[in-house]
Nucleic acid binder design. Structure first.
Lengths: 187, 187
DNA sequence: CCGATTGTTGAGCAAAAGCTCAGATAAAGA
DNA sequence: TCTTTATCTGAGCTTTTGCTCAACAATCGG
């Protein structure tokens, strides 16, 4: 339904531009070009609108995970693992960074949403650990470090520090160097 | 003044236990054991209470930076740099993780507060880059990666994933191994 | 003991924001 | 065209909550 999409789009834009504190249902209706009554025709309450935005974000992450998992099928080398991981998280965080920033720093997740994020992280780690089985004597710990680092740093450079786009390429390249060194170098 | 401390403590506990959405001035007054009037005797508005909590957090970070900076004075080896960095961020994130979690994921910072965080990060990177001058051909980029990684990962394991304390030692040790490998290994 | 200053109280005001509902409008079918 | 069903409208109700202020202690110098 076009009305539903307009409402979600308006809410997402308000969040991205002005933050959670500025999000109210009357403003959402005005920006969406519908009346407040229509908003409550399709969403039971204000939180449900934000939940739908969050759910779509999570769904994109889950879809990207499934795609990237295929790239790790045919006995990948460390350099492949690192490349797939970093490019995956970079892709994820490049999509609407302002909205992503507000969602992750101002909006409190429900328990269910937290569990969904945790499950996605656990699956990613498990998949990477499997690919690492031959290269590490403790694949799960190694994979945890790789995944959390790729996630956190791509988040920091693409989402938090949205004002320095010039360094994106340099930093992601350096990130790959670090992860590769961790995987291949013996002390 | 004891009243001010009681108000700040009450507000911090509400934030840590129930989150930003549950924080209202009447509840703060009740938990602090004072009347709502006294709250407004010492703070101009609700936001000022949260600001004071945030300012104290930032001040602790800045103090820790000054202390740790001394440990990097006498021509430190890579292993020392990594140890000082990781233990510093771990110390910072171990202090009241629940409160820290809410502050970083639910409370929107003012522009001034964002700038203060950015300045602290920039100073830390600059200090580490100085210590790295002999070990890297691009100290600033290398330092950025070290600092952001140590910060983000200690945050993730001590603050976000507060439910898995058993792995703290293992993961911080592994983090040090990764940063050390990045600093010392040639591809 | 007295006045003055400082600190405390909590009922209640005012603004903000989530949400409702009776009626208007449009679409579909007979 | 008429009826019915589905959708939309927005004034305003209700609740929440940040905040005020007139009255009330408590402390203290003289």
């Amino acid at each position: 339904m076009a009305t539903v999409e307009a409402i979600l789009e308006a809410a997402a834009r308000i969040l991205a531009e002005a933050g959670w504190a500025a999000l109210n249902t009357n403003l959402i209706a005005k920006r969406a070009g519908v009346s407040i009554g229509s908003v409550y025709e399709y969403f039971p309450d204000k939180r449900a609108i934000v939940d739908e935005i969050l759910n779509r974000h999570l769904a994109r992450g889950e879809a990207l995970f499934r795609e990237s998992a295929n790239d790790l099928n045919s006995g990948p080398q460390p350099v492949d693992i690192v490349r797939v991981l970093v490019s995956g998280f970079v892709t994820l965080h490049r999509d609407d960074p302002h909205l992503h920033q507000v969602l992750s720093s101002e909006v409190a997740l429900t328990l269910e949403q937290k569990m969904r994020v945790a499950a996605l992280r656990a699956n990613t780690i498990k998949r990477v650990a499997l690919a690492l089985a031959d290269d590490s004597d403790n694949p799960h710990i190694t994979a945890t470090l790789l995944v959390d680092t790729a996630d956190a740093l791509s988040h920091r450079w693409l989402v938090d520090a949205a004002g320095t786009p010039a360094s994106e390429k340099i930093m992601t390249n350096e990130l790959q160097k670090m992860l590769y060194a961790y995987l291949t170098c013996e002390p």
